[in-house]
């Protein structure tokens, strides 16, 4: 996916080194290879590659990862702005 780069410096992904147990789950589930495990600690190697899907945080056994998950979808964001989070089209089954 090196052909596809989105905006830099926007991702809310945060990794807390101290609580990481180095299990490597984040490295497995990340679809953009944002993390790698070196010396029994996870490391963010491509912060700008993160699309905030939240897979790593959902599967981190020690809650070392924090990210505000969401869909990078303009239509869903417009719908949220207009109708509020609950009524937005993405929480129903309208577009994807």
């Amino acid at each position: 996916m090196k052909d596809f780069r989105y905006l830099s410096g926007v991702s809310t992904l945060k990794l807390d080194d101290a609580s990481c147990v180095g299990c490597g789950m984040c490295e497995i589930v990340c679809p953009h290879r944002v993390m790698t495990v070196e010396n029994h600690k996870a490391k963010v190697v491509d912060h700008d590659g993160c699309m905030e899907c939240g897979a790593c945080a959902t599967n981190c056994p020690s809650n070392a990862i924090a990210v505000t998950p969401g869909v990078g979808c303009a239509a869903a964001i417009i719908s949220t702005w207009l109708k509020g989070k609950e009524a937005s089209s993405c929480s129903g089954v309208k577009c994807c």
Binding site: Y6, G70, G72, C73
Partner: peptide, 13 residues
């Protein structure tokens, strides 16, 4: 953006 597999919500916003 919503149809792509690489855009983040923070970025799109």
């Amino acid at each position: 953006t919503g149809s792509t597999p690489f855009t983040s919500m923070s970025g799109v916003e």
